[in-house]
Design a protein around this nucleic acid. Structure first.
Lengths: 247, 247
DNA sequence: AAAATTAATTTGTCAGACAATTGACGGATT
DNA sequence: AATCCGTCAATTGTCTGACAAATTAATTTT
């Protein structure tokens, strides 16, 4: 997305945010003039927010600001590191023991990352502490060689943040599977809980824009310390039958 | 969204789906001519799919079809009933015991639904069985009077499907909070598990287009029978500071 | 005062145009 | 023969101006 477009979207977002829910926005010609862009460009940006359910366009009547369904952007649909999340939730956290090792990929990991079975992977494990108590345990598995040793030195606790900061390869999205598991011995020890106690688990595949998986991760969370949510939409997403020639 | 717009989006979705990932789409003038719409309209539709990450537009180079990140539309971001989900996953399910009662709202429920503390609510509880084993337990709390008695007769197991079928009030989205809890006595009995065993829990607020909550629900899932996932995007969502005049 | 008519708005769509940059092609150079 | 470089068509981003259809407000009529 171009910079100008980004700027237009941000400015429009601000205008929408400053308009009380239920109120009508200025008409498109007025708003376009006011913002110094053409009506066509404005309409494209409008479509963005219509997709997000932030505005509702009634033909020949006007464009209305919707009641914000809580906070549309603060849910799981936006990918951010646990550290960033914890910081935003006001939870004072620090990184516990870090374990970094190179090893052979398991079959599961090789499949997930699209590697040969004998490939080497980088295994990064660390816990997140709050008040000296582990509340999250994160395991990232990446193809070996992706991150240089000198880069590893400035590892702050988040593989995602490191990749984002580096800027390459460009990341697109993460597929995150949500599960509940019973703590095994390793996890029980990490969290100081009983074996068999329930833990929230995310299994995630991090995709680049080219569609490759460059991070396969497991995240375990002690119940009660994190609050994840998703905004689910009522049938707005167009759902074509996916590429039959490839499938 | 108008019907013509819907049609254009569906046709464009089909074209995108039929184009192998990585390939370039026809240029905008060509595609617009081919589809019989103006370039401006086509670009608005394009923006929709760019938002979804299905295409990538490179200025002065072309529009490229992205590798579909697994199935973008089958995650939690689309709101569908457990019954619909189970059916799609090929899980043969049936509805277990149903309990419907009118009662006074608890303080928590009154807050969630925006009702007076002494208001009446409709409490619907039911379990979902597969092979005579409970795998999910659903509790919906709605304002009393929203659903008529005659409508309750054709209750098939999903409040959401009932509301969607009726069409009014128009639903917009659901805010779904994800948690893990330890089974209490009631839940242990329902699922036939031990007290303290971990369960996946969704707490959800169902919003109408006018921003009102019309369903406050708790859903409990036995681990292993359902697979929920979310596609998380890397910073595409514009995040304005929400309405300061209202907040 | 109420109803009917009229006029002004507003979104949806279209056609045509220009700018800036990319990427491929051909030619020149080493 | 291989490489480098300039040229040029192609493509997206953006703009201007316009019209249709329906809604909404204002005006007129009964």
């Amino acid at each position: 997305m171009s910079e100008a477009t980004q700027s237009l979207q941000e400015r429009l977002a601000a205008i929408i945010a400053q308009t009380p829910p239920g109120m009508r926005l200025p008409s498109e010609p007025d708003l376009a003039r006011e913002m110094g862009v053409s009506r066509a460009s404005l309409r494209e940006a409008m479509r963005t927010f219509e997709m997000q359910g932030m505005i509702h366009r009634r033909p020949r009547a006007g464009t209305y600001v919707m009641q914000p369904p809580a906070v549309i952007e603060s849910g799981l649909e936006v990918l951010e590191s646990i550290d960033t999340l914890a910081a935003r939730m006001g939870l004072p956290v620090c990184m516990g023991d870090v374990s970094i090792q190179k090893r052979l990929a398991t079959r599961e990991e090789a499949t997930a990352l699209g590697l040969m079975e004998s490939a080497l992977v980088l295994d990064i494990r660390r816990s997140i502490l709050t008040q000296k108590k582990a509340v999250a345990y994160l395991i990232d598995v990446l193809p070996e060689g992706l991150i240089g040793d000198e880069e590893m030195c400035e590892f702050q606790g988040s593989v995602l943040d490191l990749l984002l900061k580096r800027g390459s390869p460009s990341l697109q999205s993460s597929r995150c599977e949500i599960n509940v598991i019973q703590a095994n011995r390793e996890l029980a020890k990490v969290f100081g809980i009983q074996r068999g106690d329930g833990l929230l688990m995310f299994r995630a595949w991090l995709y680049t824009v080219s569609g490759q998986v460059i991070d396969y991760s497991f995240s375990y969370f002690l119940p009660g310390y994190f609050r994840f949510h998703v905004v689910r939409r009522v049938g707005q997403v167009i759902n074509p039958n996916l590429n039959p020639t490839i499938k």
